[in-house]
Amino acid sequence: MARKHFGGTLTGFVIGLLVGLGIALSVAVYVTRVPVPFVDRGVSRKPAQDVEEAERNKGWNPNAGLATSPATVPPPVVIPDPAPAPVVAAPAGSPAAGKPVAPQPATPPTQADPLGELMRSRTGAANGAAPPAGAPAADPFTYFVQAGAFRAPEEAEAQRARLAMLGMAADISEREQSGRAVFRVRIGPFNQKAMADATLEQLEINGVEAALVRVQR
C-alpha cells in the first residue's frame, strides 16, 4: 500500500515537471518570434515600407507645433509721423513774404533779482523816469550801510561772512573810539541814497541790524 502511494506521487511529479518544461519551451519560442518594440522594428521592415514612410514625411515640419497661429500674432504697431511745425506767415511787403518762417525757440525766463529791482525802483531806473527839473546834478554825500561795530576782529569777520552768505560784499575798517579799537563792518560806498536805502531794507528783511552812514564827499 505504501509502495502504491509512493509510486503515484513520483509519477505525478514527473508529469508535472514535463508539463512545466513544455509550457516554458512554448513561452520561449513565442518570445523569440515576436518582434520587440524599439529593437526589432528595423529588422522586420521592408524596402516598400521605407518608401511609404519617406513619402509620408516629405512635407513634415518638425517646428510646426512651435509656430504661432495667425490668430495669436499681435497686430503691428503703427507709429504716426510727427506733426509738421507750424508755418508763420511773414507780413505783406516784407522780403520774407511768401516763404515759410520756422518758429523761434522760446526765450527762457530771466531769474528774479529782488535787490536789483528794489534799487532800480528807488532810483527811478525801472520806469525810465528822468530826474526832476531843478534837481542838483550830483549828491554831495557818499553813503555806507554799517552792519555793526565790534571790539574783536573775529566778531567782525563773522559778521562779514554772514553778509557774504546773503550775497553782499562788506569791508572791515578799524577806528579808535573812546580810547579803544573798534572794527566796523560796512557795505558801500553808494553814490545814490536810494541804493543805500534798498541795501538797508534788504538787511532788515534778513534780520541784520544796520544803519545808514552819510559821509561828505
Rank of each mutant, 00 (worst) to 15 (best):
A126N: 11
L203A: 04
I205M: 10
A89T: 10
M119G: 06
Q111H: 07
P140E: 03
A112Y: 04
P80A: 05
R180A: 15
V78Q: 02
F144S: 07
G98V: 00
A2W: 09
R122P: 05
E154W: 02
P103K: 04
N206F: 07
A137C: 02
F6V: 13
M168V: 12
N191P: 13
I205N: 00
P136S: 01
T9G: 13
P75M: 02
P37H: 03
F141N: 14
M168Q: 15
W60C: 08
P80I: 00
A64T: 02
D50Y: 02
P140C: 01
D197A: 02
Q104C: 00
N191C: 14
N63K: 11
V78F: 06
P91Q: 04
S26V: 09
A71L: 06
G12E: 10
N57W: 09
Q146K: 12
A135G: 03
F38H: 07
N127R: 15
D171R: 15
L115E: 13
G12Q: 11
Y30L: 10
N63A: 12
I79R: 09
T9V: 12
A211Y: 12
G7S: 15
V73N: 00
P189I: 10
R162C: 04
V27F: 13
A164V: 07
A152F: 10
V182M: 11
N61V: 00
Q159F: 03
L21W: 14
S178Y: 13
E155M: 12
S173R: 14
A170Q: 05
G167F: 09
A130E: 13
A156R: 00
P70A: 06
V208T: 05
G167W: 00
G7Y: 14
P136A: 06
G124F: 10
A152I: 14
A92Y: 11
L163M: 04
Q192M: 13
P109N: 01
A129D: 11
A102C: 09
V185N: 02
T9Y: 14
E209F: 02
D171V: 13
G20D: 07
L17T: 13
A90K: 03
G65V: 07
A90S: 10
R217A: 08
H5Q: 15
A196P: 01
A96C: 06
A92I: 09
G128S: 11
P74M: 02
P82H: 04
L203H: 05
A149P: 08
T142Q: 13
A210K: 03
F190D: 01
K193R: 11
R56W: 06
S173G: 12
G7D: 12
V208Q: 05
N57D: 01
A194P: 12
G16C: 05
E52S: 05
S69Q: 09
P108A: 02
G207D: 00
T68F: 06
E117A: 15
D50T: 02
V101F: 01
Q177Y: 13
V208Y: 04
A125K: 15
T9W: 14
L203F: 03
F150K: 04
E204Q: 03
V43T: 10
P153M: 10
A194G: 11
R162A: 02
A112R: 06
G148I: 05
L163V: 08
E204A: 05
G148F: 02
A48N: 04
G22V: 13
V51G: 00
A194L: 09
V14N: 03
Q111I: 15
A90F: 06
G12Y: 01
L115I: 14
E201N: 06
A198I: 08
P108L: 04
E55W: 05
A196F: 00
E52Y: 01
